[in-house]
């Protein structure tokens, strides 16, 4: 089995017991204090120049996503076009970071995005439930990478995690990472809504990073509770502490439920005041979202013109 944990943490992954001891030895999280901190950062007032900066940054961090059973090549091409030029009325608008699709749409997306810097991300590993045998999951990943995916968004086996089989989760992440090789960056999705507690989310974050995650990601967008400021704050604290301990920097991606400019800016404030400017870049922070983009565009138009915009002045996809 490949091991991706940095030398400093190699002992922690030596056995299931060792891994449990390590993960359960991480500092606990008091939910009320965590939520209060997230809420307090949510009261930051981001105005004028700071708002303009934040809106463009947020646009550039979006993994513009379509993950529907009804996805078609036409839908994916439309999304790709929007990713490259989010606002047809204003070509100074930055492109999004990536489009995010199912593996069978990777080739279509890749083709549509040719010549742009926009990446193709693909969910894999039997997304969103992750309930398939490992060889099937790995084949899913292999397919997507072969089709040209720049990034793979995998889901962890929440069942194994909740049953306490941490080594199994770890080894699966490591195996997926091996499939990605140096072709694709790996995002590890925890489905935080199913892990339920913040302590679990912190443990999963470390497990993901030790397994080789390039990004850790809150959720699939397919369950009731997706990205929230507090659960994203837990991820941010984890990448901050992980870098301090190992020297390795890992990105963060909240996904699902972030729909307004106001929300997006709150997340950027969390990034700014928890991990700082080293993460204020789409190489290290992403938003997994779809409807968020139009709200950012309308707010951007408002800042530029002084008028409130409306839905007819941004594109539907």
């Amino acid at each position: 089995m490949p091991t991706n944990a940095p030398a400093a943490l190699a002992d922690a992954t030596a056995s299931d017991a060792a891994l449990r001891r390590f993960l359960h030895g991480l500092p606990g999280i008091d939910p009320v204090g965590l939520e209060a901190r997230a809420a307090s950062l949510g009261t930051r007032s981001i105005k004028t120049t700071a708002k303009a900066y934040a809106i463009d940054l947020a646009i550039s961090m979006i993994d513009l996503t379509t993950l529907e059973g009804a996805d078609t090549p036409g839908k994916v091409r439309a999304l790709a076009a929007k990713a490259v030029h989010p606002d047809p009325l204003d070509r100074t608008t930055p492109a999004t970071a990536a489009v995010c699709v199912y593996p069978d749409m990777v080739a279509t997306a890749k083709e549509a995005l040719k010549g742009s810097d926009v990446k193709v991300a693909s969910v894999a590993t039997a997304f969103p439930a992750g309930r398939a045998a490992l060889p099937v999951k790995l084949a899913d990943v292999r397919d997507a990478v072969a089709a040209g995916a720049d990034e793979i968004d995998m889901v962890i086996d929440r069942g194994a995690f909740l049953a306490g089989h941490y080594l199994k989760v770890y080894e699966e992440i490591a195996a997926v990472k091996a499939e990605c090789g140096d072709k694709a960056r790996l995002k590890v999705i925890f489905e935080t809504g199913e892990l339920s507690t913040y302590d679990n989310i912190r443990r999963a974050s470390w497990l993901g990073m030790m397994g080789g995650a390039d990004f850790i990601k809150t959720s699939t967008g397919k369950v009731a509770v997706n990205a929230t400021p507090p659960n994203t704050l837990v991820l941010l604290e984890a990448v901050r502490d992980y870098r301090a301990q190992t020297g390795v920097q890992v990105g963060v991606k909240p996904a699902g439920g972030i729909r307004s400019t106001k929300d997006a800016i709150k997340f950027l404030v969390l990034v700014n005041e928890t991990v700082g400017e080293d993460w204020l870049d789409n190489h290290w922070f992403r938003f997994g979202a779809s409807s968020l983009l139009n709200d950012l565009l309308m707010q951007r138009q408002k800042l530029a013109t002084g008028r409130y915009s409306g839905p007819d002045y941004v594109t539907v996809d």
């Binding site: 930051r44 007032s45 981001i46 105005k47 004028t48 120049t49 700071a50 708002k51 900066y53 934040a54 940054l57 950027l268 404030v269 700014n272 005041e273 700082g276 400017e277 204020l280």
Partner: peptide, 11 residues
């Protein structure tokens, strides 16, 4: 903390 993300005055 100096950052690219400077908050504009919000009085």
């Amino acid at each position: 903390m100096a950052s690219a993300f400077e908050y504009a005055p919000a009085p």
